[in-house]
């Protein structure tokens, strides 16, 4: 009897502990949602109003009306999709080659790229883009985003190809396939889960990136994080539209995380990757 009570008490304690771990994570997002659904009067009320009653969607409408938000959203989509796509095209074969050649030096370059502060790439690239006259287009932003996406893809794919059994490709080679065919028709189909993980992570970290576009983007070429940050500077206290914009920016990656949490956990556990 005593043992049973002890166990129940232990379980309650454990449940409380888990709640304490999870609560801060969810609260910030719920508060973001709450702010975005209230009018300005409720948002600046003290003590704070927690549950929007009734919820209003004016903030979202205002974001789209006032801030050229749609244009920046399109910019973000173009940049992240292109940078991720290019990284997959380049990085998957490269990861395969590095794994096959056991090229540890190449792996070290990727590792150092992972630990270099994103800001330090910007001075030379900023000057370079000015000299060759690319400023004012999305090209510089896409190119700098490759600094984030390429190392993520190479790193994950390298690990993935190293873990694949070599027998199948060798059988294909003995049967007269070229190494490209062995890669394309044997190794790559096997590596599909790895490619999925790499794509998702590269996309998320490119989408979230702030600093590159912050420095390189002009009025027409801002990505969403930069646009939202600019709203803060100009609208100090209008919390509703600000939260609505913040929510719109981060909603796609949060949804992606919820949908693909298994792959994301897998990829992050293996590589400890993070961009910028």
């Amino acid at each position: 009897m005593m043992r049973k009570i002890n166990r129940i008490a232990g379980n309650i304690g454990f449940g409380f502990g888990v709640l304490m771990l999870v609560a801060p994570a969810i609260t910030v997002f719920l508060w973001m949602l709450s702010l975005s659904l209230k009018n300005e009067l409720d948002n600046t009320d003290y003590p704070p109003v927690f549950i929007p009653n009734p919820p209003v969607f004016d903030n979202f409408a205002e974001v789209f009306e006032r801030n050229n938000f749609l244009k920046y959203a399109i910019n973000s989509v173009i940049v992240s999709f292109t940078a991720t796509g290019l990284a997959i095209l380049l990085g998957v074969p490269a990861g395969y080659g590095i794994a096959k050649m056991k090229a540890t030096k190449a792996a070290v370059v990727i590792l150092i790229a992972r630990i270099t502060p994103g800001l330090s790439y910007l001075i030379p690239l900023f000057l370079l883009f000015q000299w060759i006259g690319l400023t004012g287009t999305l090209a510089p932003i896409i190119i700098t985003h490759l600094v984030i996406t390429v190392p993520i893809v190479v790193w994950i794919m390298m690990g993935f190809f190293e873990g694949l059994p070599a027998e199948l490709e060798e059988a294909a080679l003995v049967d007269g396939a070229t190494i490209w065919q062995a890669f394309r028709h044997v190794a790559m189909p096997l590596a599909k889960p790895g490619i999925t993980v790499a794509t998702i992570l590269a996309f998320i970290f490119s989408w979230n990136n702030f600093i590159f576009a912050m420095v390189l983007a002009g009025r027409e070429t801002r990505t969403l994080p930069v646009a939202v940050n600019n709203m803060l500077t100009f609208e100090q206290i209008s919390w509703g539209p600000l939260s609505a914009a913040a929510l719109l920016v981060t909603a796609p990656v949060l949804l992606l995380t919820l949908l693909a949490q298994k792959q994301i956990v897998e990829g992050l556990t293996a590589g400890g990757v993070k961009g910028g």
């Binding site: 979230n208 994080p225 939202v228 990656v253």
Partner: peptide, 10 residues
């Protein structure tokens, strides 16, 4: 996974 700028604003 959340966008740093967005959570920083909140």
């Amino acid at each position: 996974m959340a966008t740093p700028v967005a959570v920083a604003l909140v």
